[in-house]
Design a protein around this nucleic acid. Sequence first.
DNA 1: CGGTATCCGAGGGGATACTG
DNA 2: CAGTATCCCCTCGGATACCG
Lengths: 130, 130
Amino acid sequence: MPALEKISYDPNAPVDPRVETLVNELIGRVADKWTLLVLEELEDHGTCRFTQLSRLVPGISQKMLTQTLRAMERDGLLVRTVHPVVPPKVEYCLTDLGHSLGEAFCGVWIWAETNLDRIEKARSAFDARG
Amino acid sequence: MPALEKISYDPNAPVDPRVETLVNELIGRVADKWTLLVLEELEDHGTCRFTQLSRLVPGISQKMLTQTLRAMERDGLLVRTVHPVVPPKVEYCLTDLGHSLGEAFCGVWIWAETNLDRIEKARSAFDARG
DNA sequence: CGGTATCCGAGGGGATACTG
DNA sequence: CAGTATCCCCTCGGATACCG
């Protein structure tokens, strides 16, 4: 497992509480299930079209895909390009900011993969205790 | 900004789709707003009591605090210790697994702090475009 | 193809009251 | 102190139908 501890981050550093609230909101927004799945697919496949994404992201509805893509575009995580042709062609591509978010989430992704078994065992043990 | 790119992670590595689903569910579970805030406070302050946490986590209701702590205990992220005294005294303490999750989320936290301004500008620009 | 509009049910989550 | 129980609102998100 890569050494994440190398990251220098002082949790005791004084942080403006207003900023802290904004950061919490931002993380809440960005740690959304669909956002993460769309982010993953765009990282893996590069530029994608709408229908392509709806096939790649398992279980997402048209509505949620539209909402998720709009929110990500608004946050500057991806760029939406409309090609003026018939039939319509719309492409979605991650920005540098989007890629950097993907990299930031790598640690969590690795953590989840690494500890999946451990957590399932913890759950079984907890449930067994009643 | 620390080099997160040092983390070796091949997104093209073949992953059992069943495992992928479980990982996604796990991340969805763990990336919960209240879970992250409780995790942060326990990292900063060490072992805490129930009422102490309810004061530390801004805006959390008793109900959500109870639910969040139970879920985290079930996942093996923290240990709940009941001291048989009157008045009751219950202490919550992160496990190694809990700490490792906190470290994994460091990258996301730093990303959010680093890019907060950039995202607010992206939003303003998007909203201005109509 | 790439959406928007509308309806609707499940459940997330707050407020309040009560208990060992 | 550290919860549980109840009520209730209100948002999230799926299903369906329609449009440029």
